[in-house]
Amino acid sequence: MNRKTPSIIGAAVGLALFLAIALLPALLYGGYAGVLLAGGIFGTPVQPTFLVRSLIMFGMVMGALGVGSLFAVGGAVAGAAVGVLTTSVAPAKAATQETKA
């Protein structure tokens, strides 16, 4: 097994989790961040002009990418941690068995 494998698996799990539970909220929050930025740039109340819509879309994309990255990286770190634990525990077990034998 490659040294990277556990963290890649972890990242995939993180990403799957993101798609299952966090994609929608991320789009909502990102879109709202876009609305707030548009309010500052074009003034409130925000009118649905092309530029405002683009900024909201941009916010949604950034929200999804940001939260998705958080899940993927969190998953990768968790995967790496599991990888380190399992690989360091396995030889230790083997060692104790040897001493018993």
Partner: peptide
């Protein structure tokens, strides 16, 4: 979460981190 995580973790040559 988008830019720093991309540069330090997610870009293909660096992934998973």
């Amino acid at each position: 979460f988008v830019v720093h995580f991309y540069n330090a973790h997610l870009k293909p040559s660096i992934f998973p981190m």
